[in-house]
Amino acid sequence: MEASNIRVDATLLQENQNNLVRIMGSCESVDKNTNCATIISNGPITLDLNHTQLDKQLIPGKNYEIIGKVSNSSLKVHVYSVIQLSDNLNLDFATKFVQYSQKVPDIYIASHD
């Protein structure tokens, strides 16, 4: 299924190299020179924003859901899509959700993965 991706946080990047992933987290910093950003999702994740034409900048302190591909070695995430989430998002719940979604692949992860 072409539209599927895996819900992960910083702790699950290693085992999802080269996979399309979906990350909920809070933006910590944005480096406009390198077009990279750091998002906190149960740990820091470096986002490479060069692969998407964002019509808006990521703002530090705001919450986002990122869809992107985990690079092979550096574990940077090449961002394809960004959705802003509400400020009151509870990231602890988001972390729990990621953990639980890994435990029920029947309803989350395409069987051929």
Binding site: E65, N88, N90, K96, Y100
Partner: peptide, 11 residues
């Protein structure tokens, strides 16, 4: 409007 609803729904 409240993104916690996304998590709530999935849980």
């Amino acid at each position: 409007e409240d993104s916690n609803q996304i998590i709530y729904h999935h849980l």
